[in-house]
């Protein structure tokens, strides 16, 4: 694995995507089901924070993955990995970012 660590960024960028989805799916249960362990007044700030972290994580890992693949791998390998791993992560990050901006009423 020595010298190949840059392959981990795009893999993490894609395979960590279930985390934001799980977070979004569970926010409702944590707030509106018994036992309630998140007060309703916290639901908005915690959701915004979660979406922000998800956006940074998705874009950050996908950008790192894209850049390191393009600079350290053969072009054909880089293109295949970017299409398979980084672009889905970019799209997911874009959805989280759009949701974040809408929920903040900034756009």
């Amino acid at each position: 694995m020595k010298g190949k660590w840059h392959f981990l960024y795009p893999i993490f960028a894609l395979f960590l995507q279930p985390l934001p989805i799980l977070f979004i799916q569970n926010m409702g249960s944590w707030t509106f089901e018994q036992p309630q362990w998140l007060p309703e007044s916290w639901v908005w700030p915690v959701s915004i924070l979660g979406l922000f972290v998800s956006t940074v994580m998705s874009f950050g890992l996908a950008c790192l993955g894209t850049y390191t693949l393009l600079t350290r791998s053969r072009l054909i390998i880089a293109i295949i990995m970017i299409v398979l791993f980084c672009i889905p992560a970019f799209l997911a990050g874009a959805v989280y970012l759009y949701a974040l901006l809408v929920f903040l009423t900034w756009v």
């Binding site: 409702g28 707030t31 509106f32 089901e33 309703e40 639901v43 908005w44 929920f103």
Partner: peptide, 14 residues
């Protein structure tokens, strides 16, 4: 459903 309640509140409240 809790998910629908969450989505409506987070969107509407602000």
């Amino acid at each position: 459903t809790p998910f629908q309640k969450w989505g409506t509140e987070v969107f509407t409240k602000r």
